[in-house]
């Protein structure tokens, strides 16, 4: 017992600050937000317990809640597969031997290190209805382009297109995965007459499936939490964030506005816990489904 005392002490000495930080700055605020989700709280007046009213209002009366859920789910369903596919496709190309490979890897990664707000501001000018680059190009061909950024029909597709610009991080992870695939397997398959698609389908994909799975899980979580993209999109146009007509009102943005623009901290806390539950459920579902197609080589 005595011999373990110094080990225990060292454990607390090194892990203690991190654990204390986690308890103080993560766990406690989380539990506090759970309590607040049952309260009406505007930061200034003391929190007032109102039971489930926040949850009931969100689910039955709030005009913004379900539109923000819809926007976020549509974005996730479209953007995540496109982003993962683009990252995998480019990673496959950049994994080919050849000169300038490092240069192109850097080029494709560069957009990911740009601040999201700056990228969005530039894209908003490109997609501007009057005088925007895209509509000017379309006009050269005699086509009148729509009001891309201020149309409820086009605003979300435009945001999805903008978000695809930065797939550098999943691309790097795919590259790491692709480089662990043994070359002998490709050589053996080639000798047996397997074509490029067959090699990809039966060698590459199974062997990088853990990496693919990781990117899918992170992509879903990231898409469900989108905030800065939508906020910058509204701000760059001088519009109310989330507009037009709630077409870009992402769940995270809606939550932020409830909390920090209108100080409905109780309502925002309830939204945060609903999001937490949904992410937990989808991640669990991902892991369940992942068992069917992810190969860990055991």
């Amino acid at each position: 017992m005595n011999s373990r005392r110094p080990e225990t002490l060292w454990f607390w000495l090194f892990a203690g600050p991190a654990l204390a930080g986690f308890a103080l700055f993560s766990l406690w605020p989380m539990l506090e937000s759970l309590w607040l989700s049952f309260c009406q709280y505007d930061v200034v007046a003391p929190a007032r317990f109102i039971g489930l009213r926040n949850y009931v209002y969100l689910l039955t009366s709030d005009p913004a809640f379900w539109p923000s859920v819809k926007v976020t789910l549509v974005f996730t369903a479209v953007q995540m597969p496109l982003s993962v596919a683009a990252a995998l496709g480019v990673a496959l190309l950049l994994n080919q031997p050849g000169r300038g490979r490092g240069f192109w890897r850097a080029v494709y990664f560069l957009p990911s290190i740009l601040p999201q707000a700056a990228s969005v501001a530039v894209f908003v000018y490109i997609f501007q209805a009057d005088g925007g680059l895209l509509n000017r190009l379309l006009a050269l061909g005699g086509v009148t382009g729509p009001a891309w950024t201020s149309s409820p029909v086009w605003a979300l597709p435009v945001l999805i297109a903008i978000s695809l610009w930065g797939f550098g991080y999943p691309m790097v992870i795919f590259l790491g995965g692709l480089q662990t695939v043994p070359r002998e397997l490709y050589e053996a398959a080639h000798i047996d007459g397997a074509g490029a698609w067959a090699r990809f389908r039966h060698i590459t994909l199974p062997l990088i499936s853990p990496v693919l799975f990781f990117n899918v899980v992170m992509g879903v979580i990231g898409a469900l939490k989108v905030f800065d993209l939508a906020y910058a999109f509204g701000a760059a146009q001088g519009l109310i964030p989330g507009g037009p007509a709630r077409a870009t009102l992402f769940y995270g943005l809606n939550l932020y506005q409830q909390a920090f623009t209108y100080f409905h901290m109780g309502l925002a806390s309830a939204m945060a816990w609903i999001l937490f539950a949904v992410i937990l459920l989808l991640t669990w579902l991902n892991f369940r489904l992942g068992r069917r197609w992810v190969h860990y080589g055991d």
Binding site: A64, P152, I240, A245, L249
Partner: peptide, 15 residues
């Protein structure tokens, strides 16, 4: 801004 304006936006867009 949050409750009424989105409906007005939809009106001017013909919805």
């Amino acid at each position: 801004l949050q409750v009424v304006q989105p409906e007005v936006d939809r009106m001017i867009l013909g919805e």
